[in-house]
């Protein structure tokens, strides 16, 4: 009987362990950073931003404001390899509240299997990076992390 209890206990530990691994996906941020850094070359590293994507029952538009300086040359590198499904990325000249904003980049025309995108920015004062997260209440297959790195020269 002790043996059966022991087996039951082991099963519980396994199930709990398995559940934890399933819900708390470990992201190798170092590998993501290293990959972006390679694509950034020959631009000098300036900053990077990881954005956690948690899909919900409603569409979301997550925005990152990036101030830049006139006269400098910038490169932006995105990595979406830690997303289970492709995600739309757009860069605008103004924030999402403005009706005068213009898109300067979109990853829509890239191959759907691509997970790295490189963009050399035109002359702007600010960039607004938008991640369009469609609603996904059924299986949260869109959860993950997107990173971008920006460099200058």
């Amino acid at each position: 009987m002790k043996k059966v209890f022991f087996i039951g206990l082991i099963s519980l530990v396994f199930v709990f362990g398995f559940t934890t691994i399933q819900t708390d996906v470990v992201i190798d941020k170092k590998a993501l950073t290293s990959s972006c850094k390679k694509k950034l070359d020959p631009f000098q590293y300036d900053s990077q931003k990881f954005t956690k994507i948690i899909s919900t029952k409603k569409n979301q538009q997550l925005e990152v404001e990036v101030p830049v300086f006139i006269g400098e040359k910038y490169r932006v590198v995105f990595n979406t390899s830690q997303m289970n499904k492709p995600i739309n990325i757009k860069i605008y000249t103004k924030d999402k509240e403005s009706n005068k904003r213009e898109p300067i980049f979109t990853n829509k025309d890239f191959n759907k299997n691509e997970t790295e995108f490189i963009f050399d920015a035109p002359r702007v004062r600010k960039m607004f990076i938008d991640y369009e997260v469609p609603k996904d209440s059924a299986n949260q297959a869109l959860n993950g992390v997107v990173v971008f790195m920006i460099g200058y020269k």
Partner: peptide
């Protein structure tokens, strides 16, 4: 409001870039 998801966030430049400019 969205449990860890930042609806609006910011990425600031590095001190080295300002010195370089």
């Amino acid at each position: 409001a969205s449990n860890d998801t930042e609806q609006q966030s910011y990425s600031l430049p590095s001190p080295l870039q300002i010195a370089s400019i």
